[in-house]
């Protein structure tokens, strides 16, 4: 069985990702101050999703996994996303 455990990822990459995460955190704070009403939730979820994707992709080495593993993760994420979107059909239109 082949193991994908050792990858030589440049330290620079990790630093860039870290900086990107910090910037996105700043953006979250900024978005909260912008008084966007109900769109504030969308902005927050979008930013959080990008941040989670960066962590998964680089820190958790999803980038180096086989296509099957990516698919197995991608399908549930899409499902959960649809579920969250469906709840908004209630909350926004109530």
């Amino acid at each position: 069985m082949e193991e994908n455990t050792s990858h030589h990822v440049a330290t620079r990459t990790f630093v860039f990702v870290w900086i990107a995460l910090l910037c996105l955190t700043g953006l979250t704070i900024k978005a909260a101050q912008m008084q966007m009403g109900e769109w504030s939730m969308v902005a927050n979820i979008a930013i959080a999703s990008v941040k989670a994707s960066l962590v998964l992709w680089f820190f958790m080495h999803l980038k180096y996994e086989k296509r099957l593993f990516k698919l197995l993760l991608f399908v549930p994420i899409i499902t959960i996303s649809i579920i969250i979107v469906l709840t908004f059909f209630d909350i926004w239109y109530r």
Partner: peptide, 9 residues
Amino acid sequence: GMSDTARII
């Protein structure tokens, strides 16, 4: 008491 839109969907 869910929204009508959600009920139809």
